[in-house]
């Protein structure tokens, strides 16, 4: 079989970009799960809100991509904080499954509202001028924006890892994950930390949404199917480790890209098939604690 390197690298790049989104989203899910013990089913809808926030900023307020990268995650993160304060905090003592059901409902509401006003078709969002065009790397043509998404996502993921694993704030966070009561006794405001953690996870999802807007267009259902793949990523990687989420996310994106090249019919399903294999061989996930 002759291998068309150009096409292969192009699909690998697509895979890396999807991997960036998987990493950002599964990272957010893992951070939220660690503190709140809920799986945030609304994550896909909040990712979509991030993309729409960028769209509104540009088309209503005339604020461009670079500010949107900051404002959209903050705005959607704030929305997440409101959700946590008004609803999620009241079910913290219940079975985890109620959190799943509640956030599933929230996701339906958000998606339904956007679908009502914007239908199901995509809205275009232009690539910012600074990132237009591409460079010829000899073995492939690299559109600058796509390269930027991969590099920037990687930086954000590593920064989040550093924040949680290497700073004092992160240490408090990890301690509160292990034993919230004890950490409260040390005078740390754990409920506020929980709220901010949810805001952080949601902000990461919104950031992924902004990054994805110029590539995938802005659609109300853009997060609906993505979140199910991210769930599979989370099952494969386990939610016990931040670095594990990042690596699994990128790795599965690459695997998906390779599948698109070698056997395109299976590109939709390869992550799920891998999930089945991992469950059969190592049920606790690649990096996870048993749950």
């Amino acid at each position: 079989m002759s291998i068309n390197l150009q096409a292969l690298f192009a699909q690998l790049l697509v895979g890396l970009i999807n991997g960036s989104f998987y990493a950002l989203l599964s990272l957010g899910l893992a951070v939220i799960f660690g503190m709140l013990n809920i799986i945030n089913f609304a994550h896909g809808a909040l990712y979509m809100m991030g993309a729409f926030a960028a769209y509104f900023l540009l088309n209503v307020l005339g604020i461009g991509y670079w500010w949107a990268l900051i404002i959209a995650p903050l705005a959607v993160g704030l929305f997440g904080i409101i959700l946590e304060r008004t609803m999620l905090q009241w079910i913290a003592q219940l079975d985890h499954l109620y959190g799943l059901l509640l956030t599933f409902g929230l996701g339906l509401i958000i998606q339904g509202v956007f679908q009502n006003y914007f239908g199901s078709s995509g809205l275009p969002y232009a690539i910012p001028d600074e990132l237009k065009g591409g460079v010829n790397l000899g073995f492939m043509f690299l559109p600058i924006y796509r390269g930027w998404v991969v590099v920037f996502s990687l930086v954000v993921c590593l920064a989040t890892w550093y924040l949680i694993e290497r700073t004092r704030l992160g240490a408090n966070l990890r301690a509160a994950t292990e034993n919230p009561t004890l950490v409260r006794a040390f005078g740390i405001n754990v409920p506020r930390m929980i709220t901010l953690t949810y805001g952080l996870g949601v902000g990461l999802a919104a950031l992924a949404g902004v990054l994805s807007a110029p590539i995938n267009q802005v659609r109300p259902l853009m997060g609906a199917d993505l979140i199910i793949v991210v769930f599979a990523v989370v099952v494969i990687g386990g939610m016990g480790s931040i670095m594990g989420s990042i690596i699994t996310g990128f790795a599965l994106g690459i695997v998906e890209g390779l599948t698109k090249y070698f056997y395109p019919e299976a590109s939709n399903t390869v992550v799920f098939v891998l999930m089945v294999l991992v469950l059969l061989i190592k049920p606790s996930g690649l990096t996870g604690r048993t749950a």
């Binding site: 059901l101 509640l102 409902g105 339906l108 339904g112 509202v113 009502n116």
Partner: peptide
Amino acid sequence: GQWVTVIQGVIFVVCVL
């Protein structure tokens, strides 16, 4: 139309809360 989805979501939220 899609308001059915929204209402289903609201029912989820109200039921859980």
